[in-house]
Each structure stands twice: as C-alpha cells, then as structure tokens.
Write a protein that binds this DNA or RNA. Sequence first.
DNA 1: GATGAATGAGTATTCATTCAT
DNA 2: CATGAATGAATACTCATTCAT
Lengths: 210, 210, 210, 210
Amino acid sequence: MSPRTSQQFEEIREERKNLIMNAALDQFANVGFHAATISQIAKQAGISKGLMYNYFRSKEELLAGIINRSLTEIYGHFDPDHDGYLTEDEFELFIRKVFDLLKQKRQFWKLLLGIMLQRGVYENIFGATTVPLSVSGEPVTQFTESFTAQMADYFRRKQEVSGPGYDPVMEMLMFTNTVKGFAITFIFSDDLYPGDYFEKTIEAIIKTYR
Amino acid sequence: MSPRTSQQFEEIREERKNLIMNAALDQFANVGFHAATISQIAKQAGISKGLMYNYFRSKEELLAGIINRSLTEIYGHFDPDHDGYLTEDEFELFIRKVFDLLKQKRQFWKLLLGIMLQRGVYENIFGATTVPLSVSGEPVTQFTESFTAQMADYFRRKQEVSGPGYDPVMEMLMFTNTVKGFAITFIFSDDLYPGDYFEKTIEAIIKTYR
Amino acid sequence: MSPRTSQQFEEIREERKNLIMNAALDQFANVGFHAATISQIAKQAGISKGLMYNYFRSKEELLAGIINRSLTEIYGHFDPDHDGYLTEDEFELFIRKVFDLLKQKRQFWKLLLGIMLQRGVYENIFGATTVPLSVSGEPVTQFTESFTAQMADYFRRKQEVSGPGYDPVMEMLMFTNTVKGFAITFIFSDDLYPGDYFEKTIEAIIKTYR
Amino acid sequence: MSPRTSQQFEEIREERKNLIMNAALDQFANVGFHAATISQIAKQAGISKGLMYNYFRSKEELLAGIINRSLTEIYGHFDPDHDGYLTEDEFELFIRKVFDLLKQKRQFWKLLLGIMLQRGVYENIFGATTVPLSVSGEPVTQFTESFTAQMADYFRRKQEVSGPGYDPVMEMLMFTNTVKGFAITFIFSDDLYPGDYFEKTIEAIIKTYR
DNA sequence: GATGAATGAGTATTCATTCAT
DNA sequence: CATGAATGAATACTCATTCAT
C-alpha cells in the first residue's frame, strides 16, 4: 500500500532503460536509425510507445544512450591507466580482446557502422548540439588517440628489431586494415562465422603482426 | 524544325536519367536511403519532383537503377568471358583495377555499404518482390561466384609452390580482409587518403599476396 | 497519538486543495489552460501527479475549482443582502473595492480573461455538461444581474439631478468601459502599475462618475 | 497541357495562403492557439492537413503570418508619413478609424488579446527566435511609439487651452482606458453591439476627449 | 515532357489519466 | 494517502506519390 521507495523506482528505471535500449539496438542495427520506428521498438520491448519518452527525451537521445552504454562497456575492457607501453603479450591480448568484443557486440558494431556512414545523424549525436558522447565522463576521442599512440609506438619499436626495410607506418596500416576487413566480414556474416575460421583468422593476424 | 527522331528522344531520356541518378546517389550515399528525400534529390538535379516519376516508378526503383548502373559499369571492367585461369600478372592487374574503381566510385561504395547493412531495404531491392538486380541481364550472384572461384583457384595453385605449410583458404581470407579493410578506411576517409599511402598500400598488398 | 478527527482531515484536505489550486492558477494564468500541464502544476505544488487526482477529478474540474474559489471570495466582499439601494458613498466604496480586488487577484483576472475568450473551454466549465459554476450554491448570473440592476438604478437617479441632457445608459456604459479598460491595462502591466497612476486613476474615475 | 506559368503558381499560392489564414484566424480566435488543431483548420479551409505545410513551416509560423497580415493592413490605414502634428479633426478621424477597424477585424483582436495574455507564445512569435513581426519591413514597436508620441503631444497642447487644472497624462490615460474598455466589451459582445450604442459610444468618446 | 500544388498514410512526440505498490 | 511508472489517444509534422494544367 505504501508507495515504492525511491531506490525501487531507480531500479525499475534502470531495468526499463536497458530493456528499451536492447530493443532499440536490435532495430537500429538491422533496419537503420531512420527506418526504425518508435512503434516497432516499443512493440519489441513489450511496452507502450509513450513509455519510451519517460526514459529518453527523443529517438536521437535513445540512440545516444545506446552508443554511450556500449562504448563505456567496451572501453572498460581496456585498461585505461596503463603505463603506455605495450609489450608483445599485451599486444596479443589486445587483439584477442578486440575480436572477443566484436563477437559479443556484433549488433552494436553494425549500428555504429551504419551511423558513421551518415554524416548528418553522426554529427547530431557526436556533435555539440545534443548529448555529447563520453566514456566515464571523458570524450571518446581521448581513448582512441591513446590507443593509436600506443599502437604506433609498438610498431616503431618493432622496426628496431626488423631492420631498415621495415616501414612501421605501413605495417600498422596493413594491420589495422586487416582487422577492419575481418570485422566487416564478420559483421555481415549472417549468423556465425563459418567453421573455425574466426579463431584461425585471429591466430593468423597475431602470427603476422605480433 | 523537324521533330526529333526516336533515337534522339532516347538519348535525352538517358541523359536525364543519369542526371537524376547522380543527384540521388549523392544524397543516398551521404544521408542514407531513408533520410534522403525526393524533394532534395529533385532540387539538386535541378528538376521538379514530378519529373523524377517520369523516369523512375518509385524511390526504390531509383535506388535499384543506381545500383544497376554502377554494378554494370564495374563488372564491365573485368573481363567476363575469361578463360577462368588467373595468371600472376592478371592477379596484380585485378588488384590495381579494384582500387582504381574504389577511387572512382567512392560514393557508390558508400551507398552500397549502407544498403547492405539494412536487411529490409536490401531485400526489397535485391529480392524477388521488386526489381531484381541484374548486370546486363544476368543475376549479380553469377559474377561474384565466378570471381570467387577463380580467386580460390589462384591461391590453391600458389600452395603448390609454397609448400604444405601454406593454407590457401586462410591466405585468401587474409587477402580479402585486407582489401576490405582498406576499402572501408578509404570510404570513410574524409576527402583524399593522406599522402601517398593509397599507392603504397596497393603495392604492399600486391607484394604480400601476389 | 490518537487518530486525527475527521475535521482535522478535512482541514488538511482543504489546505492541500488550495496548494494545488494556487500552483494551477499560476500556470493557467501565465501559459493558458491548454498549454499548462498537470506535470508542471504538480511539480510547482511539490506533489506527485497522481495526488492531484485525489482532490480533483480532472484538469477541467481543477479549473472550475479555482474559478469557484475566487468568485466566491470576490463576491463575498460585496454585501449580498443589501437593500438594493446604492448611495453615493456606497458607489465610491464599490469602486475602491473593485480596484482593490483587481490588485489582489491579478492572476485570477488574467486567467478568467483567457478562459472567457475561448468559447469552447468556457462552455465546458460554465455550461451544464460539467460542473456548473456557482457561488455559495447560487448560480453566478444572479450576482451579476443584481449588480447591474443596482448600478443602472444609481445612474438613473443621477439623471434626475443632472437634467434631461444626461443619458444614464450612455453614462453607465462609459463608466463600465473606463473601469474595464483600466483593468485590462493593469492586468497586462508587467509588474506594478507605474508610479501612483493606479491611485490617481481611481480618484479620476470616482470624480467623473460618482 | 503545358505547365502553369510561375505567375499562375504565385497567384494560387497567395490565394491558398489567405484561405488557410482565414480558417486559422477563426480557429485561433475562438478556441485559442493551443487548443486549435491543424486538422480542424484544414477541414474548415477544405484542404488536406499536409497542404498547410506547403505554405507555412509550422503552426507558429501560421500564427505569425496571420498577425503580420493583419497588422500590416491595420497600420496601412494610418498615414505613416505624417507631419507628426495631430489636429483636432485628425484626432477625431483617428478615433473613428480605430473603431472602424475594431468592427472590421474583430476576430483578429480577439486572437491578439488571447496571444498577448500568454507570455510564452507571445515571445515565441514576437521574439527573435522565430519570424519577427514587422509591418512593411519596420518593427512593430516603431509604429506604436510614433502613435503614443503624437497622442501625448495632442493632450499636452490641450492643457494650454484648458488651464493648469488639466492633467494631460491623466487625461490621456482615461482616454486610452475608455477606448480599451469599449474594445474589450465589443470583442466579447456575442454578435453585434446592441442597438446603436456602438455609434453613440464613439460620439461620447469624441465629445469627451476631443 | 514538365511543373509544383495537393493528398494521406505514417512518424515522433505529448500529456491527461490510471493503477500497482 | 502518496508515488511515479505506464498507457493510449491525440497532435504536429513529413514525405512519397498523384494529377490537373
């Protein structure tokens, strides 16, 4: 009879937000942000249309919420207070982690790829006009820059061992391209990657670029 | 002052169609199929909204037209009535051609990537319900299958030279991944690929996989 | 620790009702009945949305409640069981009272003006379909008619003194117009009426029409 | 068979705009801006909902359009390039004109009164955020200020004749209040003002304040 | 062929009201 | 009594498509 405590309300809210975001992620990823409708998202989440607006102020903010949630989770997997020095073992671990997250978050990557293709939506989400993307309060760019720097340093150091014929920038480009290409292929593969080529590809990449 | 011949009419029609398709490609690629509007496309093409429907029965058919036109042109660059045997020089030429077309048709690849991400639209276009995609009358799949077969054969033959440690399937996967990754990077690069890395990457890929 | 008496309950209810009505009056007056939202009213009153429905059955009934409360209070300031004869002193007192209430209830007059402009809402509130407006149980019209009659009588008697050139109906019209015009000006004046023109206007009106 | 000329289109547009504005004015004036719906306006205008958006970008811009049109027309009735000096005959003419326009534009005054009661809407329309109100390109305030100045000058000059007991500011206030009060009464009067009191009131005002 | 006014189905969003706790 | 999550009907607005001229 007595009303719910504010903590109970908070729990309900958090649960509901995730429920909605999960349904929306599925829709956004598979039919695209613009083609996805609030009606369909609500139906999939098993709630009324209006309820979504109790949790997100607009369709765009719902998208921002999803991206934020996923990015925060993803970046959480990579040690942020690192010493900045990447050993070979750490490099290998990093690769394995990347592909692990590729598998776990395939829907999200699909969504992100679609979003980034379209400058307009992209800027509305990442730009200053609406909710700015951030991971634990820090802007997204900080993380990517930090990653890039460490990676560049790693390949530079490899040059010292491999000799003057080794072009570290080119090598890094080839590495990232291979990873990206594999990611794209995986994202588009209908369900699971055929056979054990997922694992074999990881090993091949590690063998080639470690 | 004699009336135009029917051939002249046909040429004018073809010219108009291309004008419209160019404007539409730009819009579809940059804001996405769903977010693009007929109004904006017509304005960019410098024609009225109604006129577009003189040339294309619907927005979807306009999209199909664009994809058809580009695919036909692209496949035209690869010899279809080939003997089915890929020499090393032909392989290298093929790679150079692929990247050449990547550069020439960047807008189109962007569009295609976006379309393929979204099952729904994709199926409406490629599926049996509406205009089926075809290149010079033959279904698209024939071409891709032919390419894949020749490529697989090429890598299988390389195994004979390289010895038993060489996994031809894996090698081919790595090759296509690298190409795809490079394509993705290029599609997303804002204007031109920085410096001469475009060319250097091509050489690196050729050097590695030829 | 004895349970509250029903009278205490009644007092608490009455207090709550007034709290809600005050918040609602502020909103209704400043943004209009339709643009005002229950959410905003509840927030301003410091209660939950649901609670408001414990005291008023609907948004419209809340409006009716406000108007009833204010009208009852206002009419209470004018002696209802009067002998029906208005002396010059009583006329002057009446004018002063009117302007006093104009000052005290500015928000309410603003609301009333807005409501009366809109036939639809007006009829839903004052009409027979919903809660009929009444002051202490008697319909509003009785009061206004009584006022009008006494006022008309007052000006008629003035004619006897002023001679045949005096048109009592016209004089009364000019009087009510001047009062209304002043009221309108005051309602729209941003905060306080500038300087001492509020008082000076009252004196001028009394001097002219008493 | 040939398409309409751009002049024909322009004529259609102007006609349609007025048709829509007339229907909207009726709705806005009688049920209020917020309570009025685009559906109802469209139905009254005998057009589809969507068409309105071919002529006005939003409901607010439709309102701005109406106010602009009416204000422009109204101000057009008052000689703008006046010498700034108001004779008694001109003063009388001005009063008659005002009441004439009051009669002709009753709907509009009703609308304006309702709008001005609600700060929020009012500011969105008159403020810098949306379409700024202007009359023939000049901001509205210029006209009102010019009017006020000439009027003030008129009453000041009357003081010179009437002697030191005459308070020009007070007199002007009484004058404007009477006019406003009459306007309000008229706006609210159901159909026509009863009897010949409309004309008689005008004469009374002229007699008193000229 | 060419134009753009006109339509109407569909979409995001709001908000009074209900109800389980 | 009190709360705010939940609903759904209603509303402003968009846009592919049609059609008279």
